[in-house]
């Protein structure tokens, strides 16, 4: 359950963005729609604790994260959130498997190789485990990024334009996987996008 109350954010020398109050049930899936510059990313980063709350409150599973310190946010993020971005942001120096294992390591959770297998299987890229990131196609890389986001079984998956960089075929594939993998892992899914192609997959909309 994610609730926000009177959340606003102001960038230096810009007008403040006021967000409407949100109530998002656990396990539900939402699309965050809006023009670019409307604050989609800002809201997503606020929800995920990547950006410190200026005013208002954000409650995630009954915990008010708006008052958290930076270190507390780091810890909370690792345990409860999975992030997917427009670019996959995988670590090129590591293999697919190492990239995935980084998630539990950094979150301070036990590293489970079976879980890595399981997630890769869910995403249909089990055969890519030992490959380096440079050897993957764009679509494969984005799927690895999704695998990394769901590996720790986070309660919330926040995706920021996850399909914008992909062609139609890959977009379809990735968005379908994203939705099904979130369901399989009982995670709340919030996708910020202006990509019309995935609108028909998710019916809950938040218009900014």
């Amino acid at each position: 359950m994610i609730c926000t109350r009177s959340l606003t954010y102001q960038y230096p020398a810009e007008r403040a963005i006021a967000f409407r109050d949100l109530n998002i049930d656990t396990g539900s899936q939402f699309l965050l729609l809006g023009e670019s510059g409307s604050g989609k990313t800002t809201l997503l980063h606020l929800l995920g604790g990547l950006l410190k709350t200026q005013s208002g409150t954000i409650e995630v599973h009954g915990t008010d994260i708006s008052k958290f310190s930076e270190a507390e946010l780091d810890h909370f993020r690792g345990k409860h959130f999975g992030f997917i971005f427009q670019r996959n942001h995988l670590l090129a120096a590591l293999t697919v498997e190492q990239n995935l294992l980084l998630a539990p390591y950094l979150a301070g959770i036990k590293q489970n190789h079976h879980r890595v297998e399981e997630v890769l299987l869910q995403l249909g890229i089990a055969d890519q485990k030992r490959k380096r990131i440079q050897e993957l196609s764009l679509g494969q890389a984005q799927r690895v990024a999704i695998a990394r986001a769901v590996l720790n079984k986070p309660s919330v998956i926040l995706a920021d334009e996850p399909t914008s960089a992909l062609d139609d075929k890959n977009c379809d594939r990735v968005s379908e996987l994203l939705v099904s993998v979130a369901q399989q892992n009982q995670a709340t899914l919030i996708i910020a996008t202006h990509d019309q192609r995935i609108k028909n997959r998710i019916c809950n909309l938040i218009q900014l």
């Binding site: 993020r77 992030f83 670590l91 950094l106 979150a107």
Partner: peptide, 16 residues
């Protein structure tokens, strides 16, 4: 810088 940011998003602390 992206690696660092993504690692932070995965729960790595600044000091780590």
């Amino acid at each position: 810088k992206y690696d660092l940011a993504i690692m932070r998003s995965m729960g790595a602390s600044r000091s780590k």
